[in-house]
Write a protein that binds this DNA or RNA. Structure first.
Lengths: 224, 224
DNA sequence: CGAACATTTGAGATGGTTCAAGGGTTGTGG
DNA sequence: CCACAACCCTTGAACCATCTCAAATGTTCG
C-alpha cells in the first residue's frame, strides 16, 4: 500500500481566474516545469508571478542547517509569487510535472496602478493567504500530529478539483512532514493509524478516500 | 527578578504612518482600551481597523478546547484589523492599557476604491504581514524552544521604539508561550537559561537588555 | 492585609524524534 | 526486458525536548 505517486498525470483542469484578474490574461504565457524543478528562488528579484494550470507546486523556506518549512502547496487555479515585494522571500518548486501560466510582475504592477479593481482583488488575495497562514500557525503551534494530518487531508480535499471522493496526494511524505512541522516517520505512522481506523482508504496509487465527518472531529474543525 | 509588568506606562510615542495612509487620518478617532479588554472579536463584522498609538495589542485565535495561538503582538505604529475581509477571523485584545486610533472600514474601503496609492499601500501592508507570518511558520514548525525565544526577543527588540538598549516586554509569559507554541513553564525555563548565560539582563521591572549578537547566533538568524 | 494571579522551579510523564533496518517503486542502462 | 541503483515509504526501538502536574514564591491591587 502506498499513497504517493510522483508521476501521476493531473487532469488538465483550468479553473477560471477571478474576474478582475482577467485583465492579466493577455500578458500571460504558458510554461512547463518538470518535477522538482525550481520556479523561482528565495532572494531572487520577483520577475513574475504564476497561476498553476495543472500539477502541484510547493512553496519552501530553508534554514542554513537544512531544516525546511513548506509554506504552502499550490494547486490548479492557485496563484504563486504574488506575495513578493521586490524579491521573493521563498522558493517555489514543482512537486510533479506542472503547467503554469506566467505573468510578468511589471505588467501586474502597472495594471494594478491604473485599475483599482485589480489592485483590490490582489489585496483580497493577499488577505486570503494571510488567513490561511494564520490557520496554519494555529496548527503548527497548538495541534497534535493526528490533528495536523487530519487538517491537512481535509484542506487538500477541500482545495482539490472534485473527483468523486478521490483525493490525489502528489507530494512526498517529506513534503507533508515539512508542511506540518513533523518528521517523515511521524507522518507515516499517523497515516498508518488513520488507515487502520478506516478514516482513510486507498483507492489507487496516489489517491485516497476520506471519511470526512470523522476526520473533521479529529481535526478539531467545527467550521468548513 | 521579574521581566513582566502589566501596568507599565508606555511612552506616548506616535510614529508617523506611511504616506498614503495619511489619507485616512481625517477619519480617525482616538480610543482608549483597558488592559485585557477586547478591541474586536473573531467572527464579528469588521467595522473598523486601528493603529496602535501606545500600549500593546495581542491578536488571538482560539480552539474550542481552550488552546490558544497568539498570531501577533501589535506595537505602537502597527495597524490591526486590516486583515479582515467581511468579518474578523481573529480577536484583538489589549495587553496593557492602550491608546488606539480608529478608522471605520467603510472609509478605508471607499478611499481604497478611488485612491490607487492607498490601495497599493494596503496591499503592501498585507504582504509584509504575510512575510512575517511565513517567518513565524518556520519558527513554529522547525525551531527549538531556545531558538524561538531568541527569535522572539530579537523581533520585539527590532520592532520596539528604541530606548537605549532597554526592551519592554509588557505581555505575560502565557502570551509569549501562546505566541511561540510553547508552555508557560518552558518559556520561564528558557528565559532563566538565557539570564544564566547573560544573553539577557534585567534592567528594571518589565524591561530587559539583550546581547543581540549572541542571541542572533542562537536564533539561527543570519539576516536582520 | 489578603485574595487573585503571574512567575519560577522541580520531578515525572510522554508525544514525537532519532536512529536503524527492511521492503517497495521507479527509472535507467545494458 | 531484466537488473540494479536510487529513492521512497514503512516499521521498530530507544531517546529526549517539551509538557504536565505540583508546589513555592513573588506581585498587584482592592
Amino acid at each position: 500500500m502506498q499513497v504517493q505517486a510522483n508521476t501521476i498525470q493531473s487532469p488538465p483542469i483550468v479553473p477560471a481566474p477571478p474576474s478582475a484578474l482577467n485583465l492579466l490574461e493577455q500578458f500571460g504565457s504558458m510554461t512547463r516545469v518538470a518535477r522538482d524543478q525550481e520556479i523561482y528562488a528565495e532572494g531572487a528579484p520577483a520577475a513574475a508571478c504564476y497561476r498553476v494550470i495543472s500539477g502541484c507546486v510547493r512553496i519552501v523556506r530553508l534554514m542554513e542547517d537544512g531544516r525546511r518549512q513548506v509554506g504552502d502547496f499550490a494547486l490548479p487555479g492557485d496563484l504563486i509569487g504574488l506575495d513578493a515585494l521586490e524579491t521573493h522571500d521563498d522558493t517555489a518548486e514543482a512537486v510533479v510535472d506542472t503547467v503554469l501560466r506566467r505573468y510578468p510582475r511589471r505588467m501586474v504592477e502597472a495594471l494594478a496602478d491604473t485599475q483599482p479593481a485589480l489592485s483590490c482583488q490582489l489585496r483580497k488575495l493577499a488577505l486570503a493567504n494571510l488567513r490561511s497562514a494564520h490557520a496554519r500557525m494555529l496548527l503548527l503551534g497548538r495541534k497534535t500530529a493526528n490533528e495536523r494530518l487530519a487538517s491537512f487531508l481535509l484542506e487538500m480535499d477541500r482545495r482539490s478539483p472534485l473527483e468523486a471522493g478521490h483525493l490525489a496526494l502528489p507530494m512526498t511524505r517529506a513534503d507533508i512532514a515539512d508542511y506540518l512541522g513533523l518528521t517523515v516517520e511521524t507522518v507515516c505512522r499517523v497515516l498508518a493509524h488513520l488507515k487502520r481506523e478506516a478514516l482513510l482508504t486507498m483507492t489507487g496509487p496516489g489517491t485516497i478516500r476520506l471519511d470526512r465527518p470523522r476526520l473533521r472531529v479529529l481535526a478539531c474543525e467545527t467550521r468548513h
